[in-house]
Amino acid sequence: MAIIVNLDVQLARRKMTSLELAQRIGLTQANLSILKTGKAKAIRMSTLNEICRVLGCQPGDLLEFVEDDHGTE
């Protein structure tokens, strides 16, 4: 996957647990885990908005593009 999700880094910086974030943004822990582990195929704008609001960061702090051999997949 060429898009890296840096959610765990942002959580560690704020000393916040996944459970707390999930509860504050109204997402299940299972879905947050999908996002954290990079298994997610898409992210809703509303979810991104909530994460950025709760963590006080920019979408660019959470998502990072890394060139890999397989292009976008």
Binding site: I34, K39, A42, I43
Partner: peptide, 8 residues
């Protein structure tokens, strides 16, 4: 369906 399941 898989894509939908993996949309958060």
């Amino acid at each position: 369906r898989e894509e939908n399941d993996l949309t958060v």
